[in-house]
Design a protein around this nucleic acid. Structure first.
Length: 492
RNA sequence: GGCGGCAUAGCCAAGUGGCUAAGGCAACGGUCUGCAAAACCGUUAUUCACCGGUUCGAGUCCGGUUGCCGCCUCCA
């Protein structure tokens, strides 16, 4: 089986062929550290996290680089406003970023370089571009001359002439062409600066990624990723810088994730509808957030709303209910060491057939441009099969327990790739209950008192009173579940 | 103005030439249950925005129409 992925550069789904067999270098543009991360950052991070995990699952040796932009106008602005320096600001938001990502279960990249640790490299690269005649200096600013780079626009699919036609860009008299972009900016009063051959200044936005990708992955590497908004101008400019300097191809494959909208509107600071990761994690389990993101293909836009994330929570419960069913059936005591699939027959064998092929189907889906939506569809098929298996005439034999145990192993193995289904089901439901109770301001003691009262009513077969109490709880948003030994509850 | 994307059931969402159009949520009927809940079984798109075309065969390819959206300015 071969991995195929959609390449923004060619606008086609292509067979993936790494530069060095068995090894993959991937570079993803990270955040500018000037504010807390929002749900959009979460999507990008989760999408590339799953890509990273899947490539490793497929036995590639992956070097994953994701940078932090720690010098930039907005960071400087915030530092000046707070009377501190840029490092104070960037370190604060990098720390917040890392906390958020850890909570979301996002695996740390192999390397997370910072722009300010690579200033010398940037100066060197800009020097090369000057030598090659691709850059020019005006009053201490260095600009990239886009007209000098053949192929400018190849990633975003637009030509310079097209763009000039109806361009909505400010005319900058210093630039030879309006699309020329700054490589090095002379620093003004109150701005951080570094010495350079062109005077004291600081780097432009795009140059850092060319330098850091080259440093950690080489002149040419396999995959470059980021949000779809970065295609132009950021990634286009990276190509111009890197290929202009080295004369070699930059990245082979370009992957861009789609945006998250909030209530069908683009999320933006100006609309005031940004939703931070912290806000969402206060209301939902991290796996629910991942599940919500991975339910759709990474390239399509997804619409975040209270209703859509709540629906993801319900879907998630379905999987954990199955894991709970397996856990209870196995009762953590069975010794299955001397059982194997050769011992199976009848229904056990049939279910085993479905269970054992799940990883193949999962892989087939993921190989097709990381189709997590389809992969999860297969997992849900398995959930239904297992629940059915347990519910009808289930006898806990050595064989059936073996099948259940194997099913759980498979789900967990694939869950590790998606970063899902990794909690103990009892803990999952316990946390969910706490979180939901907090959200709806429930008095948990009151709930448990009512459940206790209902329990007594049921024991004396006072069904009328028991139903009355259940209706009362239901009105409070509580759903109760009676089992042979106890009563459990959850928030609707 | 330029470039690009999307349109699949009540909602969300897979599916890019060929068995009965995945899966989730919701709804309804049934099994189970004191009654529920959960789970399971069944039902819910003869049809994939619309109109043409290519093909033995199209949701899937081509052309056109309509509608929605994104990028072109910092943005994941």
């Amino acid at each position: 089986m071969t991995l195929r992925l959609y390449n923004t550069l060619t606008k086609k789904k292509e067979k993936f062929v790494p530069i060095k067999e068995g090894k993959i270098g991937i570079y993803v543009c990270g955040i500018t550290a000037y504010d807390v991360c929002h749900i959009g950052h979460a999507r990008s991070a989760v999408v590339f996290d799953v890509i990273y995990r899947y490539l490793k699952y497929r036995d590639y040796e992956v070097t994953y680089v994701k940078n932090f932009t720690d010098v930039d106008d907005k960071i400087i602005g915030k530092a000046n406003a707070e009377g501190t320096d840029i490092y104070d600001i960037s370190e604060r938001y990098i720390k917040e970023h890392n906390e958020d990502m850890d909570r979301l279960g996002v695996v740390r990249p192999t390397v997370s370089p910072k722009a300010t640790d690579n200033i010398n490299g940037m100066i060197r690269l800009i020097g090369t571009l000057m030598e090659k005649g691709l850059a020019y200096v005006v009053d201490g600013d260095v600009y990239y001359s886009v007209e000098k780079f053949e192929g400018y626009g190849k990633l975003s699919g637009r030509g310079l002439d097209d763009m000039l036609a109806g361009a909505r860009i400010d005319v900058d008299v210093k630039k030879k062409n309006p699309f020329d972009f700054v490589l090095w900016k002379s620093s003004k009063e109150g701005e951080p600066w570094w010495d350079s051959p062109w005077g004291r200044g600081r780097p432009g936005w795009h140059i850092e990624c060319s330098v850091m990708s080259q440093r950690f992955l080489g002149d040419t590497f396999d995959i470059h990723g980021g949000g779809e908004d970065l295609i132009f101008p950021h990634h286009e400019n990276e190509i111009a810088q890197s290929e202009g300097a080295t004369g070699k191809p930059f990245a082979t494959y370009w992957i861009h994730n789609g945006f998250i909208k909030v209530d069908s509107e683009k999320m933006s600071k100006s609309l005031g509808n940004t939703l931070t990761i912290k806000e969402i994690l206060a209301a939902y389990h991290p796996e629910v957030v991942r599940f919500f993101i991975l339910q759709s293909h990474y390239k399509s836009y997804i619409d975040f709303s209270d209703a859509s994330i709540a629906e993801a929570r319900v879907g998630m419960e379905r999987v954990y209910t199955m894991l709970k069913n397996i856990k209870d059936a196995l009762n953590e005591g069975a010794d299955l060491s001397d059982t194997s699939e050769k011992d199976l027959s009848g229904e056990d064998e049939k279910v085993w057939g479905k269970v054992s092929t799940l990883p193949d189907r999962f892989r087939e889906a993921m190989d097709d441009d990381f189709n997590t939506a389809m992969a999860m569809g297969y997992i849900f098929d398995t959930v239904r099969i297992i629940n059915g298996y347990i519910s009808k005439n289930f006898a806990p034999t050595r064989e059936s327990l073996f099948v259940l145990n194997e099913a759980r192993e498979r789900i967990r193995e694939l869950g590790k790739v998606l970063g899902l289904f990794l909690e103990d089901p009892d803990e999952y439901f316990e946390k969910d209950k706490e979180r939901e109770a907090r959200k709806s301001d429930l008095d948990v003691e009151e709930v448990e008192r009512l459940i206790d009262e209902r329990k007594r009513a049921r024991e004396s077969k006072d069904w009328h009173r028991a139903d009355e109490l259940r209706d009362l709880l239901s009105a409070m948003g509580i759903i109760i579940k009676d089992t042979s030994i106890s009563t459990t509850w959850k928030v609707k």
